[in-house]
Design a protein around this nucleic acid. Structure first.
Lengths: 166, 166
DNA sequence: TCTCGGCCACCTACCGATCGGTAGGACGAG
DNA sequence: CTCGTCCTACCGATCGGTAGGTGGCCGAGA
């Protein structure tokens, strides 16, 4: 809290004038991160009609978010996934679950349209999320891979698969 | 440290008789987790000749490790990935990187043999790891999915892909 | 066989530093 | 004069860690 206050150009007491507790601040940061996510991913990809195209656009935008635009704001949501307690934890979990339901619906729709093999929508969603969100653990902006290379490569792998097309 | 000592049936001073610092204890716990991982995954799957079969066995054993056998010991390595500092961080990073190199080699070998499409081995490895290791964030033993269902479903998705076989 | 010295595991009691948080006032703007 | 912002100065609790002992076990020597 000391360091956060200094970074805001305040003393600790000055910071506590604006927030009630440390956990309330974390909650506000996470809501801010979820806002950014919804603005930059769901709002842009959510109304694409074709479910596979919707999922591809979602993955591209989500990877961009994690690798560049808002890595700090978003990765804190990912890393501190067990930190909040009580109603604060529930608030964020509700917003997270909306994303999972959104992905599940897209996979289900794609299956029904016959665009993809019949797969468990839940497992497909968590596989999608693992591929995309694990990136925050290993990706470094000063590394060999550009955000674009990661994005294109991951999307190709996830949607086109490993096996040679017969 | 207080709680750990009590769980060991010791006082805090008694615990500190056995370890030097809190960080040294975390390092020891992580080495123990890496030992378990290498015993139960690499040692069992490492010498399978066929690279794709090797990767499939690896994924199955890794998912089993995260969902049942050693979730506590292994997930602490995953979650506290930025906690250690200095040489301790290096020690664990070296062991982690060995696993990444092992996966990369398998993907490269599978590509050279023509068993899979030509893909970037690094991206394929991190996609593999994301799928498998993200599980610790969402999987609950008392949930709907059994470890077996997760394992079978994830392996099918990762290796057979989403698209219908043409 | 007895005993004595040393060692090892572990304890009580405590340390300074830092933690999250607050009381009460200063100060500028309207 | 008041209201909202932000400060100085401080709080009790907890943090990681330690000094200095206590008590039991084990091997060596008489």
């Amino acid at each position: 809290m000391q360091e956060i206050a200094e970074a805001c150009g305040l003393t600790k007491a000055g910071l506590y004038h604006h927030i009630k507790t440390k956990e309330a601040l974390l909650l506000a940061i996470m809501h801010y991160g979820m806002d950014m996510f919804e603005d930059m991913v769901l709002a842009k990809a959510g109304d694409i009609v074709d479910p596979v195209a919707r999922l591809r656009e979602c993955m591209a935008r989500n990877i961009a978010l994690v690798t560049q635009d808002a890595s700090k704001e978003v990765t804190i949501i990912l890393h501190e996934h067990q930190t909040l307690t009580g109603t604060a934890a529930q608030e964020i979990n509700v917003r997270k679950k909306r994303y999972v339901r959104f992905l599940e619906a897209a996979f289900r729709e794609a299956t029904e349209r016959g665009q993809i093999r019949p797969v468990d929508p839940t497992l497909a969603s968590f596989s999608f999320l693992g591929t995309v969100l694990w990136i925050y653990k290993w990706y470094r902006a000063d590394g060999k891979l550009t955000p674009r290379e990661v994005s294109d490569g991951m999307i190709d792998l996830f949607f086109e698969g490993l096996m040679p097309r017969s």
